[in-house]
Design a protein around this nucleic acid. Structure first.
Lengths: 346, 346
DNA sequence: GGGTTTTCTGGGAGCGCTCCCAGAACGAAT
DNA sequence: ATTCGTTCTGGGAGCGCTCCCAGAAAACCC
């Protein structure tokens, strides 16, 4: 028995030194054994591992990151109004998927919300403070100052969706909003609809703008007039409803509506029904997002453009992981395809 | 000008030493000035602050926590099936509120999900690893092994809702599920309903069990029979729907349903309508949670038992903060009141 | 004025870890 | 045996910070 007796204060956490003493080796050897380094004899490794288990050792992360300059944590930043984050299951899915993907990559997820421009300095300071190794940033508004500020930092960052108004030099994983919108409109046209209105989103919102562009381009591609038959909503049910009301006032005989989000589609449907229109008989409705808690359970079930946030997050984490590993990754906007999920509404 | 010239490697982060040199004071004084300690002359404080700003200094968190034994991070652990977390905006609200409350308390939020029992050891190891100062744990299932495991650790923990099967010795902030359920049933009774069925939740789910008890006790308090007229759902729309189908088969002339969640209430309503019942004329329906994205927008708008997750989280953070400050807090289950929000469904 | 208290300052130690380096141990080749 | 290379080990330095302590400086008292 060459184990040494090590007496620990009862409340104290064992240190590497304690493990080493218990195993009868030096601190260096213990460190090497624990970290799987080369040049450790099988005998020493075994003893160290056993001692670590016996003492219930777990390394002090602070001490380790002080010397390795790695924290093992990645920030996930959601720069979005509170209501949006709450109403939209997209973010719940993203957060969830990010946790998984990061955990698999050996990192912890530090979740941060940015509500208003006031929060930006605080957030930037934190990100710059060496608390995290990298960041995944979701900022869909063009006016959002966060992306530009974050990009200044020497911190690996991957954006989800648009990166504010940054167009080049950034790592981003986005959906092909334009193609998705076009696909929805193409379907409406193919099924014989003539007056295809749109409930658009805030023009400041990049994805919303792209969806509007997709709608418009599909119409023009088919030489259909009425590319101004759109009204702006704010991604809420109420906003969708009032936009729909305006559209009905402008064009009572419209026979289809494409909404830039499922929530707005829900509002539009409510307004249409209040106005006595049957769906999809009188008016077909297609949404965007394929909101899993909304689209399938609506009455009628909502057709919607489907996107896969989990895939998006996985791609983002892959990119960030490569960046953290020091690989040379050329900054690029990675485009993810979307598809049309047809249900009963259109 | 008594500032000293400090040359930094261009990529290097300035250290406290750099700031001190730039300000012409010692490292100790710089530290005191930056941390707002006592006994620093106004002159020195100003110079240090100016130098820190000029150099863009931000303290190395690892070095600081190595000596202070504080990480400045708090884990928020959601031990819940993935689907539940996604479908239920309660968690989005909780996460959001926790971020705010913790940020206000000067802590970062480390969000962790525990999907299955397999995740428990990993999570416990992490929490025990000194990465966080404390934890807020949400674990609503009685069989969940996490609470007991976490409670073993010498880590300040506050539970949200039930703490698995732990009943005493824990800090917890819970809602008065029983009283809420009873209030809903009381209202149904008062408005003349005679056959009040219930769509309950999984018996393993503490809150669900309490809601069932509340329903039952309200019935017996009014000497109403039929305390076995309940069917179990699983907190999903589909589960609510099939439970409702069973209830209708058992008692076609029931005139009210209390559901242990809004999602199940939604399923119940769908089934009731499919069976030709009008709501609330034929059957009154009351849910639980007052799900903000669901209850107000349902057709008809759903009456529901309202609870305030934000308040819950704030209380939890208050308790944790006190614990972290070393205050002696007697472990207790803090009960939060709930209220009945009446809309059109019942 | 000397003495005492209060305010302020700088140096040293040390938190627990990783990494570098010199040297020991061990085998294989001369 | 002697040399050489490889494998393995322990000690020392240092990451950037906070805290303790001794001592300097200022302020206040008789």
């Amino acid at each position: 028995m060459d184990d040494q007796t090590v007496d620990l204060q009862d409340g104290a956490r064992p240190t590497l030194e304690d493990v080493a003493a218990h195993a009868g080796v030096s601190r260096s050897t213990a460190s090497r054994a624990l970290n799987g380094d080369t040049y450790v004899s099988a005998r020493a490794r075994e003893k160290v591992l056993a001692s670590a288990a016996a003492l219930g050792y777990s390394p002090n992360q602070a001490a380790r990151s002080l010397v390795t300059r790695r924290t093992g944590a990645v920030a996930v930043v959601l720069s979005e109004a509170e209501a949006t984050v709450l109403d939209d299951p997209y973010f719940a899915i993203v957060v969830r998927a990010a946790f998984r993907a990061l955990a698999d990559a050996g990192s912890q997820m530090l979740l941060m919300f940015v509500d208003s421009a006031d929060d930006v300095p605080r957030t930037v300071r934190f990100l710059d403070g060496g608390h995290v190794d990298g960041a995944l940033v979701f900022a869909s508004h063009q006016k959002d100052p966060l992306p530009a500020a974050v990009q200044q930092l020497r911190l690996p960052v991957v954006f989800g969706g648009p990166a504010g108004n940054l167009t080049s030099g950034v790592h981003a994983v986005d959906f092909d909003n334009r193609a998705g919108a076009a696909a929805a409109v193409e379907h409406l046209i193919a099924s014989g609809r003539k007056q295809i209105a749109m409930v658009s989103g805030p023009p400041d919102h990049r994805a919303a703008a792209d969806r509007l562009t997709g709608w418009r381009s599909a119409l023009t591609a088919h030489k259909i007039r009425g590319t101004r038959l759109f009204e702006q909503g704010d991604f809420t049910i109420e906003g969708g409803r009032s936009a729909m009301a305006k559209l009905l006032a402008r064009k009572p005989d419209l026979d289809a509506v494409f909404a830039a989000s499922d929530l707005m589609a829900a509002g539009a449907i409510r307004e249409l029904e209040a106005a006595g229109r049957r769906i999809p008989d009188d008016v077909a409705v297609i949404g965007f997002d394929d909101n899993p808690v909304l689209a399938p359970v609506m009455k009628p079930p909502l057709s919607s453009v489907h996107q896969d946030p989990r895939l998006q997050v996985r791609r983002m984490v892959e990119t960030l992981t490569a960046l953290l590993a020091g690989e040379e990754v050329t900054p690029a906007r990675h485009m993810l395809g979307v598809s049309l999920t047809l249900r009963e509404s259109g």
